[in-house]
């Protein structure tokens, strides 16, 4: 039941509870209770809006930063990750396998702002060994949704 609810609201968080109950063939009250429980348990962490900022007049710059760090005894990467994710500029932090340790996603108003954040805040943390900044030039697909292209229905409108 949870999986079914999640698979629908993952695609459409704005669906109302009544409609959700109808399409899943459940009772409205059960769906409402399950949603509430999942919010409380932290299964559902939030409801977000997918925005293509390029289509607005608001300037946004985002970058992915590879960070190499020295893991700390007894704490591994957790302490340094926690230091990094406190900054509001940071939208995501992942511990990853491969040639570096953390992948940090940053959003700012301009290239300068992001660069300054990396040079002033991130690189200066004592356990950070090195950083490599990759500015995002164009988003093609995000959260499973292809941006910029709107699909039209090309099917024949009548077909037996």
């Amino acid at each position: 039941m949870r999986e079914k609810i999640l698979s629908v609201i993952e695609q459409n968080a704005r669906i109302d509870i009544k409609e959700l109950a109808v399409i899943l063939g459940m009772e409205e009250i059960d769906v409402a209770n399950e949603l509430k429980a999942m919010e409380e348990e932290g299964v559902i962490c939030g409801y977000h809006t997918m925005i293509d900022w390029d289509k607005t007049s608001i300037d946004k710059v985002s970058a992915l930063i590879e960070v190499r760090v020295t893991p700390q005894r007894g704490q591994g990467f957790d302490t340094i990750a926690e230091r990094i994710y406190q900054y509001p500029e940071v939208s995501a932090v992942y511990l990853i396998s491969g040639g570096f340790d953390l992948l940090v996603s940053i959003e700012g108003k301009s290239l300068k702002e992001v660069s300054l954040f990396v040079s002033d805040k991130l690189s200066t943390l004592e356990t950070v060994l090195s950083t490599a900044t990759h500015f995002i030039l164009k988003k093609y697909k995000d959260h499973g949704i292809v941006l910029s292209k709107k699909k039209t229905d090309e099917r024949e409108s009548f077909m037996p």
């Binding site: 229905d153 099917r155 024949e156 409108s157 009548f158 077909m159 037996p160």
Partner: peptide, 19 residues
């Protein structure tokens, strides 16, 4: 088919193939 071809913003529920 002929009516819908010249109609603007018609919604078709007439197809027999997956979307």
């Amino acid at each position: 088919f002929d009516i819908v071809a010249v109609m603007k913003d018609a919604i078709s529920l007439g197809v027999g193939e997956p979307d």
